[in-house]
Design a protein around this nucleic acid. Structure first.
Lengths: 127, 127
DNA sequence: CGGATCGTCAACCATCCGGTTGAATATGCA
DNA sequence: TGCATATTCAACCGGATGGTTGACGATCCG
């Protein structure tokens, strides 16, 4: 049984896909526009988008000819939450867990607001 | 150029390795003891530990015959920080998030705090 | 010394992954 | 209708990944 976290982390393990996520942080985009800054084929980008969709990291909605991609950060948050248990050397307790949720999901209570972690410049570093 | 995040996320994408990390959250362990609950060979576990080490997620120290493995959460924190930037501006779908969490992070362990995120029970689900 | 335990190395295998190309499917528009 | 645009599908390729087994170096101990 493949865990959903498998798929999310595997999706995040590729620099092209992380760059795509960073781009989508700015705005929703059509598939062709997502592909534009990269040097690989459109088909390759399409595959990456499929992987991100299956991971739940983005959602795709077709309007006319154009398929729009938008960030769907819930899966990323889930993975992030999974990691929170490490580094604080105590078993994850529900209280801290819920506190984390409220802090994280609050509109502007975030620790700070990096405009894009890593940044789209990672596109250059792909593969 | 392979980004360090590539390696960290790729290391986290395997349920066996996540289970190992969860085990090490409890205590430092020797390689043989790490391997004990799994059904695969010791050599396979040794490979997994090498991958986790290269990702910076654990450290290994040899004392006598025995090689001890301990959690090294900095790399995980780095990955976690990278993810923090997502979801801060988007209207987060709290319902979907919680659904994801309850499905993924608490398979059937009940509501009490899981001893580790994901839990070593994932050992059985490897591959 | 010699046997038992700990762990890795090397070779091998099946499968997955990221990319390519070319054809196919939808949709928009003149 | 017919052509251009948007996106995916299908087949293929090379290389990485996750597992196996068997042999090996190291270390403890009787």
């Amino acid at each position: 049984m493949t865990d959903a976290l498998d798929i999310v982390f595997a999706a995040l393990a590729d620099p092209t896909r992380r760059a795509i996520l960073a781009m989508l942080l700015e705005d929703d985009m059509a598939v062709t526009d997502v592909a534009e800054p990269f040097e690989m084929s459109l088909a390759a980008i399409s595959k990456h988008l499929t992987i991100l969709t299956r991971a739940g990291l983005i959602a795709q909605e077709k309007r006319g000819r154009v398929k729009w991609c938008k960030l769907e950060p819930d899966a990323m948050k889930a993975a992030s939450v999974w990691m929170q248990g490490f580094g604080q050397f105590e078993p994850v307790n529900l209280e801290a867990f819920e506190r984390f949720l409220t802090v994280e999901l609050a509109p502007e209570d975030g620790p700070e607001a990096p405009d894009a972690p890593g940044g789209p410049d990672q596109a250059a570093s792909s593969s």
